[in-house]
Simulated assay, not measured.
Amino acid sequence: MVNEGNGRVKLKSVSRSTLSKQVVERIVQMLTSGQMKPGDRLPSEMELIEDLGVSRPILREALSALEILEIITRKTREGTFFNEKVGSHPFSVMLALSADNLPAIVEARMTLELGLVTLAAEKITDDQLKELRETIDAIANSKDNDYGEIDKEFHRIIALSANSSVFEGMIHSLLIAHDKTDREIKYRERERTVKHHTAIYNALANHDPYEAYKQMYHHLNYVRQKVSEHYRV
């Protein structure tokens, strides 16, 4: 990737294998190398297609992945821009580079949540526990097993109850990782989810970080196994 001296960013072309991921990597490198900054406008689609040597569908697939991760924003008639606050979400870039590796994303999610749940056990408030209980009841009473957003809210409350400004960017990335995992799950088991969430809730209500860690690991390891089954098919 070089600057041709005419203001145009020149990217190294990509090979035919794993094209979408390589395009994501090349675009992220424009940012991480310092060649472009948050808020900067990316080259046009035609320039990117020419420089990367890929088709329009491949480029748009990569741009969609980057937009989901909130690294870029596409504005009609204005172009595509790196988001101003990319730096406030430090794990989003790492998620982007692993966009097609769901098992790695699940493991990153495990790493974040297992740390957050132990802090949550020490700091969670009665109001937050009440909110957690409400999400469990809502999942238990769901009629069509379409409870992905409620599930995410359960994990969001726990993450926020860790009450640490340092973890703010991590929580943002955690929720992105949750969405990515949720979209790939082909079947849901409501009763099992309620059982797992209730065990986590009880540990938090008892302010027991060791039990909270144990129950969260049990829950997320089950999610990891479901993802592994999907990838073996």
Score class of each variant (00 low, 15 high):
158 I>S: 10
82 F>I: 05
196 H>C: 00
48 L>A: 04
232 R>H: 03
212 A>H: 11
218 H>V: 07
101 N>T: 10
146 D>M: 13
60 R>K: 12
120 A>K: 14
65 A>F: 04
105 I>E: 12
48 L>Q: 07
112 L>Q: 12
52 L>P: 08
17 S>V: 15
140 A>Q: 14
35 Q>A: 08
220 L>H: 06
7 G>A: 06
67 E>M: 03
198 T>W: 01
52 L>W: 09
215 Q>D: 02
171 I>T: 06
111 T>F: 13
205 A>S: 10
190 R>A: 00
132 L>E: 07
98 S>K: 04
177 A>Q: 06
63 L>D: 07
131 E>L: 13
14 V>W: 12
26 R>L: 08
45 E>M: 02
3 N>D: 13
153 E>D: 11
135 T>F: 04
192 R>Y: 06
62 A>W: 06
204 L>F: 04
125 T>Q: 01
87 G>N: 12
77 R>H: 10
80 T>R: 09
143 K>E: 15
162 A>M: 00
150 I>Q: 06
129 L>W: 05
6 N>S: 10
181 T>S: 02
67 E>Y: 00
194 V>C: 01
158 I>V: 14
59 L>F: 04
12 K>L: 12
38 P>E: 15
21 K>N: 07
228 S>T: 05
159 A>T: 08
170 M>C: 07
159 A>F: 10
157 I>Y: 07
14 V>L: 08
13 S>R: 06
95 L>A: 11
85 K>Y: 14
145 N>Q: 15
218 H>R: 14
134 E>I: 10
40 D>P: 00
228 S>F: 04
51 D>N: 13
65 A>C: 08
17 S>E: 15
75 K>M: 13
230 H>F: 08
19 L>T: 15
194 V>G: 00
28 V>E: 06
61 E>I: 06
166 V>Q: 05
219 H>K: 00
199 A>K: 01
210 Y>C: 10
97 L>G: 02
171 I>W: 11
143 K>N: 14
55 S>V: 05
91 F>M: 15
66 L>K: 02
190 R>F: 01
47 E>V: 13
178 H>I: 04
158 I>C: 11
123 K>S: 02
192 R>G: 02
179 D>M: 03
175 L>Q: 14
197 H>G: 02
194 V>N: 00
226 K>L: 04
10 K>S: 09
29 Q>S: 10
126 D>E: 10
200 I>C: 01
57 P>I: 00
216 M>G: 03
156 R>W: 03
36 M>C: 10
110 M>D: 13
88 S>R: 14
96 A>C: 03
20 S>L: 06
127 D>T: 01
230 H>M: 12
132 L>T: 07
70 E>M: 00
165 S>N: 13
